[in-house]
Design a protein around this nucleic acid. Structure first.
Lengths: 369, 369
DNA sequence: GTCCGATTTGGGAGCGCTCTTAACGAAAGA
DNA sequence: TCTTTCGTTAAGAGCGCTCCCAAATCGGAC
């Protein structure tokens, strides 16, 4: 990392042959400087000229195709001497690959990166997998409808090789639009729209049912739920799991709906206490909402878990720090990202995949239930 | 969003003129389908042929350059009919712009996206600003040394127009390497290396001093600190602020060092209690470490804030939920991202900038001090 | 020494776009 | 009516790379 700046003639615009003698004594071989003197970066052509071979041969070396050892060596030396780096755009133009993978987060950005560690977790998993495949991650945050259009355009420009969609709302037209453009798509959770797209989901129903089962086993009798938004799979399926666990037990379901935020959880909890002051347990469809519910219960003078047991969903870091620490259903967030990336990479490579991946959830018992 | 699939001949490989009569009755003008029949996407050439003008004229329309109303209209119609979208790679090849901006996070990925909301916050700010400028965000997570090399290569490929570096450790060679490549760079906090790079920082010294001042004003006499890593500006400057506030008061400084994680904070706290059992206050250089410190104090049987006052730094969401809620120094994380992006966009556009931006910090008083 | 087959290499075309240059057409002046 | 001038448009030359195909080269067998 101690390269020195040189101003020799090798980086000049002329692309004619450059003899080996062109290097002056002051140069450090392998670390030549082409940016400093304002000249163009070296091209395949200039490397070829220096190595005394053709463009095609250099291209073969760069791409690891078979070449005789002799020319391989001279090419490699020329590459090192000139500091050649292939031009990404030129390569993309002909191969039609960009090695770019997009992750679309169609949430208002304020929600995406405020408290909810879901998206950071997904990004983490995705980037692990992409790094291994030597692809780059393009982050597309679609807060406004305007950016929705922008995303579609940017993808239509064939700017990326594949797209991951996380956390879709309702029958979002994006999966269908992207499929029509002919670009590989993988979703987080199944699509609610008419178009079916490969997806990676978690066992929301099973997780919710396990939570409610735990409450039942603890002898709770009036179990309410704070559901998530009913235009999202997570919201819908966790409510379904709650209902399934209660079905046949002649237990009435007591439902309020939130939008996965802390405030909506608190509001929903107040509503539930009003609807049924006798309730002794709540299954909440997200930890953030559960935190809001805990606050509301405290304000209402209910003790947790003595008076009311509370179970959340997600197992975010915050869950261990609420008062009391939150019993919750863990979903493997990082693994979702990893699996989405893995699936998409297969799709991009043309390898057939199992279009549906459902990851398990797990009940984490702390203090609140 | 209700396009229908058609299989007319317009999308065929031939690029000769296509008369207006080529559209069959079954087509929906403006929504033609070129991907479904496996043919190539329309090019400038095919749009030109259909509009009865030259490539150059279409290019002008696409780029908003002046063109007579007549040809403008026919071109726009042809673009709509063919569903033309410009090819990003081809454009990049000649303009040498990619409209891609990289954000490099040179942390072990596990730390980047686990509990620390610093990076999500920066990403949030950055993407707000980039969206406004119609640039795309490429996320480069540099966990291992191997990925360090990968990042340098990918940037050398002229894959992005500019780079933002967040949270550098020590004298990281990356800023210098990127500057040498000739690509605009903006850092988060000033560089510790020999190369000076434009940066956006926060008033770490002032924030730390304010925190310690608050402790002094509350009558605390033995004020310790848990410093951050001493190879990062945040770690160094917050320690400096602590020392400056104590200077001249003939107060001994009591220092332990952590690495910004919860566990290191707990360990440091235990060390401090051992070094000076009489201490009555701690300024901790990050909220995550402060949370660890709180746990350690609880385990040691010290009451907060009665026995020991604690102040953190960052004001992450968790700070409001610790036991007791944490008094801390807020730094405007999103604004850091926004400013970095704004600075970099200027640099990319060739506009001169003020190379140093320092954002204010603010003491948030809760319960712990 | 010659021939054939198998490798290896070089040249050329083309990916889709922008930008410069030159030709073109229309309007204005003589 | 003919020339001058201005604005518009068309054509062409790349940008740097990959890939195809033909030419060159090598090795071994006869």
């Amino acid at each position: 990392m101690n390269r020195q700046q040189t101003t020799d003639g090798t980086g000049n615009p002329h692309t004619g042959p450059v003899g080996p003698g062109a290097m002056t004594a002051g140069e450090t071989a392998g670390t030549m400087q082409w940016a400093a003197n304002g000249s163009r970066r070296p091209t395949l052509e200039s490397v070829a000229a220096r190595a005394g071979v053709s463009r095609a041969t250099v291209s073969r070396v760069v791409n690891g195709l078979p070449v005789t050892t002799a020319s391989q060596e001279s090419v490699k030396r020329a590459i090192a001497e000139l500091g050649y780096v292939p031009n990404h755009a030129a390569r993309t133009l002909v191969t039609r690959r960009t090695d770019l993978i997009a992750l679309v987060l169609p949430e208002p950005t304020t929600r995406v990166f405020s408290d909810d560690p879901f998206f950071p977790g997904v990004i983490h998993g995705v980037s692990q997998e992409l790094e291994a495949a030597d692809k780059q991650l393009v982050l597309l945050l679609a807060g406004s409808p305007a950016s929705h259009a922008r995303i579609e355009r940017s993808i239509a420009e064939h700017h990326v090789d594949g797209v991951m969609l996380a956390s879709l709302h309702g029958a979002d037209p994006l999966p269908a639009a992207l499929t029509r453009i002919g670009i590989p798509v993988v979703c987080n959770e199944r699509s609610l729209g008419p178009t079916s797209v490969p997806y990676v989901g978690v066992d929301n129903v099973g997780g919710a049912a396990a939570a409610v089962g735990h409450l039942l086993a603890a002898g709770r009798t009036r179990i309410a739920t704070i559901a998530g938004p009913q235009d999202m799979i997570g919201g819908i399926d966790r409510l379904t799991g709650y209902r399934e666990a209660l079905r046949g037990l002649s237990r009435r379901s007591i439902v309020a709906v939130g939008d996965f935020t802390v405030d909506s959880g608190a509001a929903a909890m107040r509503q539930l206490l009003e609807d049924d002051p006798e309730l002794d347990a709540v299954f909440v469809a997200s930890d953030l909402m559960a935190d809001g519910a805990l606050q509301a219960l405290r304000q209402a003078g209910r003790r947790v878990p003595d008076d009311v047991a509370v179970i959340g969903f997600d197992n975010i870091a915050l869950a261990a720090y609420t008062d009391p620490p939150l019993t919750t259903v863990r979903q493997p967030i990082t693994e979702i990202g990893r699996q989405m990336a893995r699936q998409l990479l297969c799709l991009v490579a043309g390898t057939p995949i199992e279009p549906t991946v459902v990851l398990p959830t797990e009940l984490i018992i702390r203090v609140s239930a």
